[in-house]
Design a binder for these strands. Structure first.
Lengths: 337, 337
DNA sequence: TTGTAAGCGTTATCAA
DNA sequence: TTGATAACGCTTACAA
């Protein structure tokens, strides 16, 4: 148990240096020699020791993916895009979560990353999270997904445009009393949240519609939060006839609230979300679809370029397109309602 | 850039061996010395080199998690349970997928694991997958989640019982024509699939109900598959009044099929699923809830015990309880239907 | 194109 | 309790 490069070298009748070169596919190796080495390695069932290779070369062959959640649609979908790209490139994927409230006792990720990975991929962490700053300050090749912070390379959508499209769609249907289910009250910590809000405001103002403070309620990007937010909106003296939900999951919660009030999405209150969640088709939710899987893939590809280039190729940020998918949850304003 | 253990040793006025011992918290170190070493390390912002440590010690401090999918509810939920446990234990989590049809060009995971991880966690891979056999044959500490193969330690539910409970619930409501949306036609490759089927059959037979071949349709564990399966069931001369779906996601698809036929789950056709999917509450789906997150956590804990014990502690397989959650998708058989 | 040999930064054995 | 020092298995100048 423990075939080393020396065993292969001996079997092939060459030096360990040649084995190393041959097996890594380097250029300056005679093809016959390479074949002989490969045969010997296969014969002996040789597997390189990653630790030794990493120690000697200084490269780890792995990338860390840092995310606040794993079991939520957006995050797991990004992750699957990332994973397929990294695995194809032969890179190890180290998964770690951050900011997970139910695990305060954990070590923060930044110290865990040093000397351990060649690059870092960060999925949608609030821009003011101190742990995010620590990670960025590590100086490793890094790219962000779904957020942007300073000039760190990122892959995201145009969230202002998304907010504007969603709101405009409702306006086009004749709605005037339009509610907004946003994320958290007070200072907005996500680029996405801030930008979608801005898109909403722009569309409303262009249409000359008033921004009613009571019509904006936080939904915390969760289904439950969306449900509570919608319930609050329904409790108002003059209800909105349409609501822009900043995420599909919040819109699902809103649907539930509508139903428990005997109301029907689309007929009684129009609802539009953002994401293109798997379930949005099933639930007939109109939404702004974003290419979540692709965002993971593209961010990983960009990171690999950074990692594999010796000189510091500074990757640029990338903005991917979104599109409005109209379904049953939105309809023309109901005059009798 | 690159503080090593030697720098710390020098700063603390001790040998590298002592630094190593002190920093790892080993017993035979004077407390004063340890303090001095720790201070020096902190001062220099020293971070251990994992590669060097791994090479010298032979331990990798990491666990691989192998899964067929990442972006599906069951898998991402298990994964989050696994992740929180491993991260608390300071173990690196290497994520890799297998059997992913859109990536045939990838290396199979087994060779990638050798010399790279201390243990392996496998999530619900079909029992006859050759890559699964390769992984098990590696001889590393391994535990399986959601399946069982031979005597490899596993964490799962009693799928026979789950199938039986679901079916019995429908029978108790007076249903006699009960359909089954299963996974794949022909030979069943998942323990879960086979066992849930058996539970269904047992319950039917005990109630003296006939097993109508046409009432069993494959749904491939996907929403789309469930939708097609339900459509097929609805096309029959004598429709079933209730259907047991082997997963919630297939049940969601079935709901959709019902709706497009103008039928309502619960009122027209009763539907029961298995999982306790996040969306099942929202969609009023009666289901057999399984503790998916806990399964990940428990499997990871069991694996850590194996990994950390020098002698081969043979872990045992664990069966977790399920429970029936009754919601609107099931109701007494409708006599007028 | 190939070989020699000096690292890479730890851990672990053995003395002291 | 501590220190020397030999591994650990590979990569990479540098030489040949």
């Amino acid at each position: 148990m423990g075939i080393t490069i020396r065993d292969v070298a001996q079997a092939a009748g060459v030096s360990t240096a040649t084995v190393s070169r041959a097996l890594r596919g380097l250029a300056n190796v005679d093809e016959q020699t390479r074949t002989r080495v490969e045969r010997a390695a296969a014969e002996l069932d040789y597997v390189i020791s990653p630790s030794a290779s990493r120690l000697a070369s200084g490269r780890t062959g792995s990338v860390a993916v840092i995310t606040p959640y794993i079991a939520r649609w957006y995050f797991s979908t990004v992750l699957s895009g990332v994973e397929s790209t990294l695995q194809s490139a032969g890179m190890d994927l180290l998964l770690m979560t951050v900011s997970n409230p139910d695990a305060q006792y954990r070590l923060p990720p930044a110290p865990r990353l040093r000397r351990r990975v060649d690059g870092v991929l960060v999925i949608a962490i609030p821009t003011d999270d101190p742990q995010l700053a620590d990670v960025i300050n590590l100086g490793l090749p890094t790219s962000l997904i779904g957020v942007s912070v300073g000039d760190t390379p990122s892959v995201k959508i145009d969230d202002v445009h998304a907010g504007r499209m969603a709101t405009q769609h409702l306006i086009n249907l004749g709605h005037q009393r339009i509610g907004l289910i946003s994320a958290a009250p007070g200072r907005t910590r996500f680029t996405a949240e801030f930008d979608r809000h801005e898109g909403f405001v722009e569309a409303m103002q262009e249409a000359g519609l008033p921004l009613v403070p009571n019509y904006e309620v936080p939904g915390y990007f969760t289904t439950t939060g969306g449900e509570q937010a919608m319930t609050e909106l329904l409790a108002q003296r003059e209800r909105p006839t349409a609501v822009f939900c900043m995420s599909d999951e919040m819109a699902f919660g809103a649907m539930r609230a509508l139903r428990s009030h005997g109301l029907q999405p689309g007929r009684d209150v129009s609802l539009v979300g953002v994401d293109g969640h798997d379930m949005s088709e099933l639930l007939e939710l109109t939404t702004i679809e974003q290419p979540v899987h692709d965002m993971g893939r593209i961010a990983a590809e960009a990171l690999l370029v950074q990692v594999n280039s010796d000189d510091g190729v500074d990757a640029k940020s990338i903005v991917l397109p979104t599109r409005l998918v109209v379904r049953g949850s939105t309809a023309s304003v109901n005059p009798v309602y």
